[in-house]
Amino acid sequence: MTRKAKRLYSIGAMFVVVGGAMALVLTALSSSVAYFQSPTDLVKNVPGPAQRIRLGGLVEDGSVKRDGSSEIFFRVTDTVDSVPVSYTGILPDLFREGQGVIAEGTLGPDRVFLADTVLAKHDETYMPKEVVDDLKARGLWEDGKGLVKKPEETVSATPVGAGS
């Protein structure tokens, strides 16, 4: 084999692998990513039953209900609209009423959001970034101040200074 033929050979192999990988990436990006939506978005535009959604907002106060088994119901609100969510499993340690949350899953036929993953991150001052951006866009959140208009009375869970 000449040097030129070898070069063609290796460039061809590269194209096959890189091209294949690109095809995989494009398919995966069109089929397996989840879109972030606020409760208002979700009420306005009902997505298809297969579309994965990341629903972000605050856990509505007084909405968390357990039915005795491990299934949990709660509502996610952005202070304008709210969506009922059903989830089976163990909630993250930081899941609390009035706090930011992201539920990932699909919207069921009865308009109840079926979450398979619930995220509330590991920091008490943490609000999911998507949720903050969304609230900011509607003037409900200001940098440094947090939630300007609280959905309900929520006691600040942020400890200041002295501990016990």
Partner: peptide, 26 residues
Amino acid sequence: PLVLEVLADKKISVGAPFFDLTFGPL
């Protein structure tokens, strides 16, 4: 997701299903 947010102001998340589909076969 970062690029899409900056360019198109769309928020998506790319999770395990994406990587299973792309990284796995490679």
